[in-house]
Amino acid sequence: MEPQVRIRRWPWVVIALSLAVAFTLSMISPADSVQGDLVRIMYVHVPSAWLAYTAFFVTFVGSVAYLVTKNLKWDRIAAASAEIGVYFTGLALSLGMIWAKPTWGVWWTWDARLTFTFIMFFVYLGYLALRRTTDDPIARASRSSVLGVLGAIQIPLVHFSVVWWRTLHQPPSLIKPDGPAIQDPLMLTALIIGVIAFTVVYVALMVKRIELIHLDERRLQIEQSIERPVAGEAVTAPELGAT
């Protein structure tokens, strides 16, 4: 008998607390002198984009680890992280578009960062679609791990696109060799704590998602162990010589 899957409740508390802290700080930080209150979108947009990179990098690490060790634990980590990464990439893209309309005057522009992020979104949508094509955990893990490694080519392209091309999207604001571009200490604190809070949310979501994958695997095991009637079972072979 397989051990029961432990259902944890603490991730929900952690998620609620982290989001409350991030929301409060984004509200008490000052409005931007140029963008006004629109800048508050950045307190969600930037951490979402950060999480997208982190999540896809974890998918890459999980995929490599699975291919090396063949331990399904790594595949679960890779899959859970990819799902969360796709969600946060979608969130970053949507919020970026909402911010871009009043700031740049358009919902979408053919900016290198935007375009590459959108492409990365599709790569990992493909990863998730591939995982749905089979129920066999070993085949699913092997095939999606290769794609998890291959898809990682996109991550540096997205990150360095604003450095390689002079485009509309601003270069990195936080991770810069000459220090962060944001001067106001409260704005900088709100952004950094926002990034930390979202990272904690990511960890909590990972715990819950992996838990869900375990439950799903248990469900499959139970389903497969149930004896079902087989077609033709009720038909008995005729007895030879019977009158």
Partner: peptide, 20 residues
């Protein structure tokens, strides 16, 4: 090779190859 033998294999190929 990745999608081979999966039921939705060939339908999935363009989604995987085009962005990569």
């Amino acid at each position: 090779a990745i999608v081979n033998s999966s039921s939705a294999g060939t339908a999935l190929v363009p989604l995987l190859v085009a962005p990569l």
